[in-house]
Amino acid sequence: MDEEYKKEKFETLKIKTSVAKKFRRFSRALSKSQSMTLLSMVDFFKMNNISPNEMMGPQMQTLENLIKKRINAVIAILKDMEKNKVNPTLGILESLMETADPKNNYENRKRDYEEDDSDPDFYK
């Protein structure tokens, strides 16, 4: 049990046996005391402004559609940035590199890890 509720006295609630059994199983599944489980449930409903009597179907579908629209908008923004900013900038940089040293193309450069096998002493 939570420390701040440790000194509070217990109160009795009258609930049906079948409901109590379900609630106890649910509390054990959450690894919390029954009081903390009930408090968490009440806080959840209060924070999310949800009534246990209303259906969640349409609200959840609306929320899902809203999230999908926002994700699609973010994807569109990223594609636009790549198309209008990144690719032209990359093209400008590549053309600057080629004009600075046209003999030293990307394809003709030797990397540090590549061996020069034209040397006659290479295989000795």
Rank of each mutant, 00 (worst) to 15 (best):
E3R: 08
E3K: 13
Y5S: 06
K6L: 13
K6N: 07
K7V: 02
K7W: 01
E8N: 14
K9F: 07
L13N: 01
L13C: 07
I15H: 05
I15K: 06
T17K: 14
T17A: 13
F26D: 00
F26T: 00
S27Y: 01
K32Y: 02
S33G: 12
M36F: 02
M36T: 06
L39G: 00
L39Y: 09
L39W: 06
S40H: 04
M41E: 02
M47I: 09
N49W: 03
I50W: 07
S51A: 09
S51N: 09
P52T: 08
E54A: 06
M56G: 04
Q61K: 11
T62K: 15
L63E: 06
E64R: 15
E64S: 10
N65V: 02
N65E: 12
K69Y: 11
R70N: 11
R70L: 10
A73P: 01
L78V: 10
L78R: 14
K79R: 15
D80R: 15
V86F: 15
V86P: 00
N87K: 14
N87R: 15
T89G: 04
G91M: 08
S95E: 13
K103V: 06
Y106R: 14
Y106T: 07
N108H: 12
K110Y: 08
K110Q: 09
R111S: 10
E115Q: 10
E115Y: 14
D116L: 03
D117E: 09
S118Y: 05
S118G: 02
S118A: 09
D119W: 03
P120E: 14
D121P: 01
Y123P: 01
K124T: 03
K124D: 07
K124Q: 06
